[in-house]
Design a binder for these strands. Structure first.
Length: 202
DNA sequence: GCGACAG
DNA sequence: ATCTTGTCGC
């Protein structure tokens, strides 16, 4: 399915770093249940615009590379609960930095048609350490050598996050947006708030 | 065949 | 993801 859908990914689109709103997505597991949260923020102020939660059952195991199939159904349900479509999805996982170049962020982007980026806390493969300052980045290369993402430092001297394009945007815009969403912590506010929301819902 | 890798 | 002991720093 990933091989079949990957050609639908669009590698250019609006500059998501200047989008009015961004939605953070995350899930929490409790036994065989899964809770997904979507938190829409105003990018300029980081104020919460709206939140949505959905619950479901885990029907797919965790398999690196097939991660999206585990979380997508419930994440889509959470997105459906929003009144208006956000300008960009900020996913907790990989986009193009994936064995078949079709990680969760690409999958969600293609399904919804919305611009999306992936900001993962851990990479799927090896990476070069970027400089120590916030904003420093090092390219993430695919097995074939193509640049598919960046290890981006969001805080001085703290482990970087791993940014990649999901759909309808470019890597520079994705990194710029990530930096706007990380004024204080390593992980984007969107992801942090979504994480807090879904882990207090059950 | 072994290793290993989003959450 | 979750669990777990200790350490460092604001």
């Amino acid at each position: 399915m990933q091989e079949r859908l990957r050609h639908r990914v669009q590698l250019s689109g609006p500059d998501v770093s200047t989008a009015r709103t961004a939605v953070g997505l995350d899930v929490d597991y409790t036994g065989d249940r899964i809770v997904a949260a979507a938190v829409v923020l105003e990018v300029a102020t980081l104020d919460v615009v709206q939140t949505s939660v959905a619950e479901g059952e885990t029907t797919f195991p965790y398999i690196p590379g097939l991660f999206a199939f585990r979380e997508i159904p419930t994440l889509l349900a959470a997105l459906d609960g929003l009144d208006e479509a956000p300008a960009v999805l900020v996913c907790d996982g990989q986009g193009l930095t994936h064995p078949r170049r079709f990680g969760l962020a690409c999958h969600l982007g293609v399904i919804t048609g919305l611009p999306s980026i992936g900001v993962a806390k851990t990479p799927l493969g090896p990476y070069e350490m970027p400089g120590p300052k916030r904003g420093d980045r090092a390219p993430l290369l695919h097995d074939d050598g193509g640049e598919v993402g960046a290890a981006l430092r969001t805080r001085d001297g703290v482990k970087p996050v791993f940014v990649s394009v999901g759909h309808r945007t470019d890597l520079d815009s994705a990194c710029a947006l990530t930096l706007r969403l990380t004024p204080k912590y390593r992980v984007p506010e969107t992801t942090r708030l979504a994480d807090q929301l879904c882990r207090r819902s059950p």
